[in-house]
Structure formats: structure tokens, C-alpha cells
Amino acid sequence: MIVVDRIAKAFGTHVVLEDFSLTVDKGEVVCIIGPSGSGKSTALRCINGLESYDRGTITIDGARVDRADPSIHALRSETGMVFQRFNLFPHRTAIENVMEGPVYVKRVPRAEARERAVALLEKVGLAQKIDAYPDKLSGGQQQRVAIARALAMQPKVMLFDEPTSALDPELVGEVLKVMLTLAREGMTMIVVTHEIGFAAEVANRVLFLDHGRILEQGPPEAILKNPQHERTRDFLQRVLRPAA
């Protein structure tokens, strides 16, 4: 469904991504892990054209992702994105945030969009907060609204860019739970994360990225329990035992 074929990106002499390839099938959950600055987020952001790339190709169901082409808008409406810092629209309530895309991009009738938005907010456990403005919500609640907002577009794939990194530790669980449910329901997901436990439980495949290259990839048991590369071992040790 999603084919990333040897994309590369550099800022001057600084290489951000090198020879990055990734194929994701329908219903697959792929987690991308790696140290900060390894290019994880950039790779993810290339997939819906928020970021440009210098070489290679990306296709979603055969359609090329090219941020300079007008087709990019339609492609983005089919890929949900969840950001590290939520990026909810502060001037709109939770339900208005969720209705925004369907009503203004897809031209869904307001009543229908509202009905679906209510259902989505219930799904993420925020039925009581539909009329709350984002600044009245906790980080975990905001992120769950953001997930509902992305789901409202009925995307083919959900992209998560470190969705729990900006959250207080006690709020991480509620967001991961929603993501877990989505994965169980068969949503195609690409998740950039530091949550190794989540990757171990949910991912079909884990990619370890370092200095813009995929160092190793495979099923979570292999990568997380028995990494082949020194760098992967180092990284996992630091993430799993941050105190050491």
C-alpha cells in the first residue's frame, strides 16, 4: 500500500535520510525507533508531503507523493497525521476540531459530520469533553482529540510522530491505549516512538534508524530482544534503563 523507495534528503552536507526504503501493507503496524536526530520524524513527514525529499519515490496506493504537485492535498486527506505537540486548533472546541476536515475538506453535511465526530470522541473516551476548548484539556486528552480529528477523515493510514513524547508520564497510557485499539481494529499505522513496550506489543515490524539509515528491521521480537547491531543494543539499553 505504501511504498517508500530509496528516498534521500540532505541539508547542505548534513545527511538527514539516506537510502530509506519501506513497504507497508494494509493493516500493518510499523514502528520506527532510533536516537533523536536519526531522521525518524523526517521520514514520517515525507510520507504525507509535509517534508520534501531530494531523491527516491514514495507512493500511496500507486499515487506518487509530491508536495509540489496539486495532487498532494487529496493524498493528505487520505493519510491521518498525529503530531508530537497535538496541534489542535485552539479557537475551536474538541468536536469542531474533529469536524473541521470532513466539513471543509470533504464537504460532508454538518449533521452527518457531527454524528461521526461524536462517535469518534466516544471512541477515544472523551464523550464528556466534546464542547471543551483545547486549553481546558490535559495533554493526553488533547492528543486523543487529535487522533479523533485524524480518524475523522477515514484515512488509509495513520502516521504518528512521537505521539506521547510531549506528555507527562502518567498521561502516556491513555494515548497508547487508543493507539492499541486502532491497531487491533486493523488500522494501517506508521509510528515514530520511544515507547519500546508499545512497539513490542503492537508492531508487526520495527525499524531502527540511525544517522538517516535503517540499521536493522524485522519483527519486534528480533529487533527489540535480540538486536544485531551494537548501536541498536546501545540505544535500547539507554531507552529501557534511562537511569543507568
Partner: peptide, 27 residues
């Protein structure tokens, strides 16, 4: 207006004029 707002709007498939009208200008 925070650039993340523009990216969120773009990620919903909004074209530039719509991003301006619905997300940037109201803020």
C-alpha cells in the same frame, strides 16, 4: 500563528486558501 497549526491543517488535506481562512486568520 504557530507553524504546527499550518501543518495540522495541511495534514487534513486543506489547500492554502482554506488553511488561511479556517486556521491562520481566525488566530
Amino acid at each position: 500563528v504557530d507553524h504546527g497549526q499550518i501543518e495540522a491543517a495541511q495534514s487534513l488535506g486543506m489547500r492554502p486558501a482554506l488553511v488561511m481562512r479556517r486556521v491562520v486568520l481566525p488566530q
